[in-house]
């Protein structure tokens, strides 16, 4: 059991997600940086998809009810056990009664705290992930709060000192580059607007959460003249409400792009210019507000090659931690 002394900002229980219910408006959920989530679990000897805590911008303070092996991956910040600093991306032992706490964020946005045995909340539709908008899954369907007692599963835990070397981690660059496959309603904008979209440097807006990341600072998008179809609404950025792919980039009113993430709204009435490729979705979870960002146009072949690169990196992490 983990007793929550302070919860952090919006700390939630997450695993790899809940596929199969998007047609009813229930999104995948799960860790925004799934590479970091998998690595944290592998470090402590859990299954890759065990439930962990995802904390954004600041960590919680947790008192351990049993001995456990712990690892913290993702963003960089000081990790402390009874005030003594530990190394990130590295497994360490915590004794019953000790307190895990965190210092101020140095880089990145989200940390993943894996505990041997996993966070053992009940499965909801096959997953332990929290979907807070729908009060589903996780700990009572919500972010953790002070006083909560989080159940931890049985698990021996791996040894302390196991490490994911820096060369096997991925971080967003400066500016962050998010690769995009144009499509969906790309034809609704002018060729010049399309060129400009990829040329501009955008900044992550403060409205950036598990549902989606908003960007601002680029030029407004110009639309191809077009009579609005019946049922779509009068603004040129409106469409007859349709499904939204994960990673899809909608631009309401043509001004501020929003990239949908793991707690996506499943559909709505805004056109989309394309979709961030699967290989770069983890990077979005590590972007802080105000981070300069660029969208980079790629082809499907490049998207698939990037996906293979990510899998190869994960395979190396698995191999490094298999022993």
């Amino acid at each position: 059991m983990l007793k929550v002394s302070t919860p952090g900002l919006a700390t939630t229980v997450q695993d790899l997600g809940r596929p199969g219910y998007y047609h009813l408006g229930i999104p995948l959920s799960g860790g925004m940086d799934r590479f970091a989530l998998r690595a944290a679990n592998l470090l402590v000897g859990n299954d890759e998809g065990a439930a962990v805590l995802e904390a954004v911008f600041m960590g919680p303070q947790l008192v351990f009810g049993e001995d456990a092996t712990v690892a913290v991956t993702g963003a960089e910040l000081p990790v402390l056990v009874d005030g003594k600093e530990q190394v990130t991306w590295t497994s360490f032992a915590v004794k019953k009664g000790q307190t895990l706490s965190f210092g101020f964020l140095r880089s990145g946005a989200r940390i993943y705290i894996a505990v041997s045995g996993g966070i053992d909340v009940p499965l909801a539709l096959g997953s332990r992930s929290t979907y807070a908008i729908g009060a589903l899954g996780g700990f009572k369907g919500r972010p953790i709060a002070a006083g909560d007692e989080l159940p931890v599963g049985a698990g021996k835990g791996a040894a302390a000192g196991r490490n994911v070397p820096e060369a096997l981690r991925r971080k967003p660059g400066q500016p962050a580059e998010l690769r995009v496959l144009p499509g969906l309603y790309w034809h609704r904008i002018t060729a010049e607007a399309g060129r400009q979209f990829f040329a501009d440097t955008w900044k992550v807006a403060p409205e950036a959460d598990r549902m989606g990341y908003r960007f601002r600072g680029g030029k407004p998008i110009e639309f191809v003249p077009h009579e609005q179809p019946f049922g779509a609404g009068s603004d040129p950025s409106n469409i007859v409400d349709a499904c939204y792919p994960y990673g899809s980039i909608q631009v309401p009113g043509g001004t501020e792009p929003i990239v949908l993430h793991r707690d996506a709204v499943s559909g709505g009435g805004y056109f989309m210019v394309g979709t961030v490729i699967s290989a770069d979705m983890d990077l979005i979870g590590q972007l802080q507000p105000h981070t300069p960002s660029r969208f980079v146009e790629v082809t499907m072949d490049q998207a698939l090659a990037a996906r293979r690169d990510c899998k190869a990196l994960l395979a190396k992490v698995r191999e490094a931690l298999a022993a």
Binding site: P229, G231, I239, A242, P245, G247, M272, G274, M300, A303
Partner: peptide, 16 residues
């Protein structure tokens, strides 16, 4: 249309 490398998006008609 493709929605990235994980989705196929099919618009039956522009209007409802």
């Amino acid at each position: 249309s493709f929605g990235g490398d994980e989705h196929v998006f099919v618009e039956i008609d522009e209007e409802m």
